[in-house]
């Protein structure tokens, strides 16, 4: 029997992430980073991180050593950034066994520390990243200026170097046609909102990412507090819309959502685009109690059937059709297990 722990606000908030950009003060930044200096970044950081209290929990991976699917899998599970793959020849990552802490090396900055937790847990994600940042920075000083804070390769990240974000599941808000208004309000608060997958206001799976824009002029605590508060408001809004939809016509709502369950349980071919729509529906249904499937398991499964991850599962290169077959099969098996418990 599996045991699932629900994270705070997990009916709407899928995960919370905090990333910190840091650069060693005596090494050239990304545009001038030679292979030799990149190795120095890796040597220093791995040494410092492995020697921290929980250092043994980290696995070190060079991007050049990984197959393409394995790299994509890490991006799909939010363990590394997509940008880390722009520098495959020099980039690496250290990932904690629980996947909650990642250290990205030789991305746009020498280091990106990341804390990642399910639900709305920005403070704790920040704590995890900052703790590691301090441990490494004590050993090898980071580029820092009293006026401008931590110096990043891109001035857009200078200051705290902190980018905090939450991934939100907003099916009811999206269906109500109010996303545009919500986005505008959020932009006024100095926060950015965008579809997690796809461009502009269209978001696959009704997943949206909310993050801070500026990194200079506000403390880490302030930014986290503001983002948490804004997230809390969006969460309330989404819950209200879900309730309203239920009040309006519960049977209609259930019918629409549960049909997606049927598709997933019996489909023989499933592409990612369709899957994300169905996933959004069954997650919505589970959050309303129409379907007894644990949300953390649904979210984990969602990541596990993304293109790279499904490739890793197969252990071989697949044609698009083979991927669709394996995705459909995996979903049938895993979803059956979830509701059987």
């Amino acid at each position: 029997m599996y045991e699932y722990v629900m994270a705070p606000e997990q009916d709407v908030v899928i995960s919370s992430r905090v990333r910190l950009s840091r650069n060693y003060e005596d090494l050239p930044f990304s545009p001038k980073l030679t292979q030799e200096y990149a190795e120095e970044v890796i040597e220093r950081t791995t040494e410092a991180v492995f020697n921290t209290e929980n250092g043994a929990a980290f696995t070190f991976l060079r991007m050049a050593d990984l197959e393409e699917d394995a790299r994509s899998r890490l991006v799909e599970h939010h363990l590394i950034s997509y940008d880390l793959l722009k520098f495959v020849n020099r980039s690496a990552a250290m990932i904690s066994s629980a996947g909650t802490v990642t250290v990205m090396l030789n991305e746009e900055d020498h280091i990106r520390f990341q804390g990642l937790l399910p639900g709305l847990q920005l403070e704790r994600s920040a704590e995890m990243a900052l703790k590691l940042d301090e441990a490494v920075g004590e050993k090898y000083p980071f580029a820092f200026d009293h006026q401008w804070g931590f110096l990043a390769a891109s001035p857009a990240n200078t200051g705290t170097g902190m980018r905090a974000s939450v991934i939100l599941h907003l099916p009811a808000l999206a269906a109500s046609g109010q996303m545009g208004a919500v986005m505008q309000t959020i932009a006024k608060l100095g926060l950015t909102v965008r579809g997690l997958y796809g461009d502009g206001s269209e978001a696959r799976g009704n997943l949206y990412q909310l993050s801070n824009q500026a990194t200079l002029g506000r403390s880490e605590e302030d930014v986290i507090r503001a983002l948490s508060a804004a997230t809390g408001q969006v969460v309330e809004h989404e819950r209200n819309m879900r309730e309203q939809a239920e009040k309006k016509d519960m049977l209609q709502l259930q019918d629409g959502l549960m049909r997606s369950w049927g598709e997933l349980m019996y489909a023989r071919l499933m592409n990612v685009g369709e899957f994300m729509k169905r996933y959004s529906d069954i997650r919505y249904a589970a959050s309303m109690g129409y379907l007894h499937a644990p949300l953390p398991a649904l979210d984990a499964l969602m990541m596990d059937v993304q293109p790279g991850s499904i490739g890793v599962r197969a252990g071989k290169l697949m044609s698009p059709r083979e991927s669709e077959i394996l995705r459909a099969k995996t979903l049938r098996e895993e979803l059956k297990k979830l509701v059987a418990e």
């Binding site: 920075g137 000083p141 820092f144 857009a156 705290t160 990194t215 002029g217 506000r218 403390s219 302030d222």
Partner: peptide, 15 residues
Amino acid sequence: RVHGNTQHAGRVPGG
């Protein structure tokens, strides 16, 4: 222009 600010108000390196 980017941040609306030019004074860091966050953490300083540990130690």
